[in-house]
Amino acid sequence: MIQSPGFLLTILAFVLVIGPLVFIHEMGHYLAGRWFGVKAEAFSIGFGREIAGWTDRRGTRWKLGWLPLGGYVKFDGDMNPASQPDAAWLSLPAAERQRTFQAKPVWQRAIIVAAGPAVNLTAAVLILAGFAFFYGVNATPAVVGRIEPNSAAMRAGLRAGDRITALGGRTITTFADMATYTALRPDEQIRVDYARGGKPASTSLKIGVTTERDRFGNTFRKGVLGIRSARPEYRRIPLWQAPGYGLAMTGDVLRGTLDGLGQIITGRRSVDELGGPLKIAKISGEQFSLGWPALVWLIAMISINLGFINLLPVPMLDGGHLFFYAIEAVRRRPVTPQVAEWAYRGGLAALLALMLFVTLNDLGSFGLWKNLAGLIG
């Protein structure tokens, strides 16, 4: 039976997920800017027309926009998307110009820009550290307990008691490592390194494929080896060790994100799996209906991806700014305003095209195009 969280719960969950993540991202920029003496003109959650706001004693306008799909901090003198000095900036009084973003050395500007993604990644580390402390971690060793009949593992000659040490050249420590690696690689041929009776050995196999369906009607195509563990082991993590586990889990998620992106680029994974705000809202509602722990876990996953995406060297994103600052640091002077302007125009066009594509993907995953085709037919 397919369960639906409902429209209102979905909207609420989406706000609870996106709102705090956008806030802490922009707060990272804001606090780093204040640290270096840059005045902020505006701090906005959401885009478009202001629906509520106030001005603090420093002159910063804190506001909510009607379109809750992001946010921004506008620093003094930040008069164009590329944050390039212009005639209006040059005309400012010297004392006022010193408080502007463009007046700061390149290393300070880089820190201010990088602070947003850094805070997102730090938030994820802390959330995952909390899960490690309160719920423990799956410490089941990557030892074969049972082989499923007619599975990839059986065809490769693996046996109960074998300890898997590497898959596709990637070191495997726990059963969870093995499951995560194989889930992302259905139908792929890989090398398996293992130890049998203390002696190293290796074989190759083609990862099996299974399709699963959750309680919300979502289907997932994932890879499986056909291996079961002998005895699951969960271990509580001391508080002082939890941040390290949170950092390691964040690294694993980032590596999985890079793996998935590489598979899409090389055609091994369908671009239909790319999703946008509508899909995030749908998943948020589903996870919220499962309880607060599931929603908080989702917040950590999206926070990691938000930090990662913003670090990509694409103009209009934080990573694009950092790319230009790196060029400026090497050349000892910024790129010309004309080059920056055209780069940011291209980046904006690419982001808008991607947003349109993922929105169409989202609508397709909801069955809109099939329904329209049925009506037309």
Rank of each mutant, 00 (worst) to 15 (best):
F7R: 05
A13T: 09
V22S: 00
F23R: 01
I24G: 03
H25Q: 02
E26R: 12
L31V: 15
V38M: 09
I45Q: 01
R57G: 02
R58M: 07
P68A: 04
Y72L: 07
F75V: 02
L90N: 13
P93Q: 05
P93D: 13
R97F: 06
W107L: 04
R109E: 10
T122A: 15
L126G: 05
A139P: 10
P141W: 03
I147H: 05
A156P: 08
G157F: 04
T165H: 13
A166R: 04
G168P: 11
T173L: 09
F175C: 04
A176R: 08
D177A: 04
D177H: 09
A179G: 01
L184A: 15
R185E: 02
D193Y: 07
R196L: 06
G197W: 03
K199C: 03
L205C: 13
T211P: 05
D214E: 04
F220Q: 00
K222L: 09
E233T: 11
R236I: 14
W240C: 08
G251Q: 05
V253I: 15
Q263F: 10
T266L: 01
V271F: 15
V271Y: 15
I280D: 00
A281Y: 10
G285C: 09
G291F: 10
I299R: 01
R331C: 11
R331V: 10
R333N: 07
P337L: 08
A343M: 15
A343R: 11
G346E: 00
A349Q: 01
G367D: 08
G367V: 10
G367Q: 11
